[in-house]
Amino acid sequence: MDYFWGLLINGILVGSIYSMVALGFVLIYKASKVLNFAQGELLMIGAYICLELVYQLQIGVPGAFLLTLVLMSVMAILIERLVLRRMMNAPVMSVVMVTIGIGIILRSIVLLVWGPITLHFPAWIRDVPVDLGFVRVSVIYIYSFVTCLIFMAGFGLFFRYTRTGLVMRAAASSQVAARSVGVPLHRVFALAWVVAAIVSAAGGVITGNIAGLTPELSAYGVRVFPAVILGGLDSIVGTTIAGVIIGVIEELGGGYLRDWTGLSGLGTVAPFIVLIIILWIRPQGLMGTKEVERL
């Protein structure tokens, strides 16, 4: 039973990172109908930038983390301004491919500058296990979970109570209506990219602190897809819940199904099998808008 609880708690903690990264993905999709395939690469490069700042400036991980968020915001604005804005009326395929292209460029930068080897953050939290009563978890997981909660709550409040948040929600719910009442759409798109870059970088730094940095971190970007489909492509609340569910499926899948089926790597594949099943039985996801084209 301890094994089960361990996997479950681990799944929830990992899932909270997915939820946070998925927030950025859904936000860009809602604001501009762009599927951002560079999300994972944003996460990866955010982590590497933070690592570089930690070693170059000697300001500790929290300070470097905040500086990283600023740098990532600048990068997001550049990406939106230089590439995505010119693609505003392009077909879906071109937009998807352009984000894939951006992802490839970011990945090659990481490989050129830092190489394919695993790098580590300096240990700045003493890694002591915390006893939750029924299971013991590493304290760094608790930190990561709390950070994710803070970020998501922060953005939740931002969308709910600020004027800018209201404008973004307006643009997300209807581009045409928002534009007709004077919402500057291109600024909303840029802001969506900034938010996506911030949550990605946060996810990257957290994962980097837990498991070390490799270019493989970018895989987190695609692991968000099942969460997004499960939660509903245009539902931020649904995606947040689904992120945790996918994290749990991954952990339980990796932990139990391997013993039952003798297949390795089922943990990472299981969420994608769930994705296909969801598309078969409930394509709008848990909380998404139903937009099935009946044929």
Binding site: L35, V92, V96, F225, V269, E293
Partner: peptide
């Protein structure tokens, strides 16, 4: 039956699986 973005994600899943 769905809009194009779902097919993109479904084929992505197909690639992984």
């Amino acid at each position: 039956r769905l809009s194009g973005v779902y097919l993109i994600l479904a084929t992505f899943a197909a690639q992984v699986i």
